[in-house]
């Protein structure tokens, strides 16, 4: 393969989930497209690097620093929702039920993969806790790494006295009790809510 093509294939292979064959398909697809589309893609990729920055308050990725959410005075500054990645903010926003602010950790604790507390934005989170903040909602994956990170945050923030909560776990909406596993039912019982 020519050096230019080979280089392009290798660059695509660096993306998650993309192997050599898929990378080759992308490259030949771009070659079949007009130059305008390929240049538009190149420009969009370049802009990711030159125009996207880290918000110095919440550590999310966006075009402005501080980001739009952090500067939006209509958002409730007493609530901070902690997420693993910026890509999870739109998921919470899509519920339409949260009007507070966010904090992005930049990943989850995973010491076996070399991600210890120093690799995440815990100290920035700690700096944000002031008397105005009433609650920190930890919204992380329901995995070992997510649980470890949530417990670590709870321990980290304990001296501040701020209320730390986590998302409820249990039966999915529309789920049948008959088909749920014991762990899920147990968590649902732990997180039961009062009806009257």
């Amino acid at each position: 393969m020519d050096a230019v093509l080979d280089n392009a294939v290798r660059q695509f292979m660096r993306l998650p989930g993309v192997g050599r064959r898929t990378a080759q398909r992308y490259v030949y697809h771009l070659l079949r497209q007009g130059g305008e589309q390929t240049l538009a893609l190149a420009s969009a990729v370049e802009a990711l690097h030159t125009k996207i920055r880290l918000c110095s308050v919440c550590c999310s990725l966006g075009e402005s620093d501080p980001c739009g959410i952090c500067t939006d005075s209509r958002r409730d500054a007493s609530l901070i929702c902690v997420v693993g990645e910026t890509s999870e903010i739109p998921v919470i926003e899509a519920t339409g039920r949260y009007r507070g602010r966010y904090h992005v950790l930049g990943g989850l604790l995973n010491p076996a993969a070399g991600i210890g507390p120093d690799k995440l934005t815990f100290s920035a989170l700690l700096r944000r806790i002031n008397p105005q903040v009433a609650e920190v909602i930890v919204a992380l994956d329901a995995s070992v790494e997510g649980d470890t990170t949530a417990l670590y945050i709870s321990r980290l923030l304990k001296p501040t006295g701020v209320r730390v909560t986590t998302l409820a776990r249990g039966l999915p909406a529309g789920g049948s009790l008959d088909h749920a596993d014991k762990v899920t039912i147990g968590l649902s019982l732990d997180g039961r809510v009062q009806l009257t």
Partner: peptide
């Protein structure tokens, strides 16, 4: 696996 990694790295704190 996570705990073993923490035990092996003296830089990791007791909180973890």
């Amino acid at each position: 696996a996570q705990l073993n990694a923490v035990y092996r790295d003296p830089a990791n704190d007791d909180a973890l």
